[in-house]
């Protein structure tokens, strides 16, 4: 253990009410105490720490656990060690994948959608339609037209452009909202563990981002990498919870409408032409595309009000 680590351990020992502590892991920093495993987080950005403290306060509920900060002997939620702030959190280890825990995940998402709301940290407004148009034009200049992939890129462009326009339209009509749904940037299906028949959700320490984008990506990833059926169950639960209002539905759909898989496929084709190895294959592109189509269809059926329509894909 180097000097810095021993300084940290001694700060933890003297500031928190643990009788004995042992470091058991470095990344993430885990310590074993007589009161169970604890996670230590080191913050170099105090503004972010304060934001996270406030964020957790906002989310406190008896239905889920949030990785709140332990208070020190003097009642503070962090310890200052040099230029850093150190926080201590619970670290339950029983995994809680979405598959098999759809009800709990839906309840958690419902709660987060209601309570994890604030003004967005960064506001991005750019036209996806213009972006795909530019990408298409650029691709032409790279003379990738001889490739087999080009046929696919070209044949999809019209749908890609329509999808991009729909995404722009859905985002545009919902952009004048003061508060939006936020999730930590690294939110994933690994963000939750299980404890006393409920979920323990880790907000971690990354910055809050547009929750609709992150949630839509999480559902897509879950459907692609794991079981589509579990996403189906999750959506059913969300529907029963009345979790998704018109705005949420629009913004989640916008994320799936955005033809990012096509853009990545174009870049991948260009890079391949330049001899750079990429992992975006035709098959993968088609897989993502089809999955998005299915998600959009199911989501629209469940959540869009009668009369509202996002059109076919």
């Amino acid at each position: 253990m180097n000097n810095q680590q021993s300084l940290l351990m001694s700060a933890i020992q003297s500031n928190y009410r643990f009788k004995q502590i042992n470091r058991v892991n470095e990344q993430p920093f885990l310590i074993e105490t007589e009161r169970g495993l604890k996670k230590i987080r080191i913050w170099d950005n105090e503004a972010m720490l304060k934001l996270h403290l406030k964020w957790r306060e906002q989310l406190v509920t008896d239905r889920f656990f949030i990785d709140r900060m332990y208070v020190t002997r003097s009642g503070l939620p962090f310890v200052r060690v040099g230029h850093y702030a150190v926080t201590c959190h619970d670290a339950p280890y029983e995994v809680a994948p979405i598959a098999g825990h759809e009800g709990l995940w839906a309840d958690l998402i419902t709660h987060l959608m209601m309570r994890s709301r604030s003004t967005p940290v960064t506001e991005e407004h750019f036209s996806m339609a213009s972006h795909v148009q530019n990408v298409f034009e650029q691709a032409k200049t790279f003379q990738v037209m001889d490739h087999e992939e080009w046929k696919l890129i070209h044949s999809c462009f019209s749908s890609v452009f329509t999808r991009a326009e729909k995404a722009d339209h859905l985002r545009e009509s919902n952009k004048h909202q003061m508060k939006t749904f936020l999730l930590p940037e690294d939110f994933s299906s690994h963000s939750c563990t299980q404890l006393f028949d409920t979920l323990f959700c880790e907000l971690g320490q990354s910055q809050p981002m547009d929750g609709y984008r992150l949630l839509a990506d999480l559902l897509l990833r879950e459907a692609l990498e794991h079981e589509e059926q579990s996403v189906h169950h999750l959506l059913q639960h969300l529907s029963r919870n009345d979790a998704i209002d018109q705005r949420s539905a629009d913004l989640m759909l916008a994320q799936w409408f955005e033809p990012t898989e096509w853009v990545q496929f174009v870049y991948s084709t260009v890079q391949k032409d330049q001899g750079i190895r990429t992992d975006i294959t035709v098959q993968k592109f088609k897989h993502v595309w089809d999955q998005k189509v299915r998600l959009i269809h199911e989501f629209s059926t469940l959540f869009l009000q009668t009369g509202a329509s996002v059109g076919g894909t």
């Binding site: 406190v60 008896d62 709140r68 208070v71 009642g75 939620p77």
Partner: peptide
């Protein structure tokens, strides 16, 4: 008694 998070009262619905 104060909770480990510093709360005096634990609120449920």
């Amino acid at each position: 008694l104060s909770s480990k998070y510093g709360d005096l009262i634990i609120r449920t619905d």
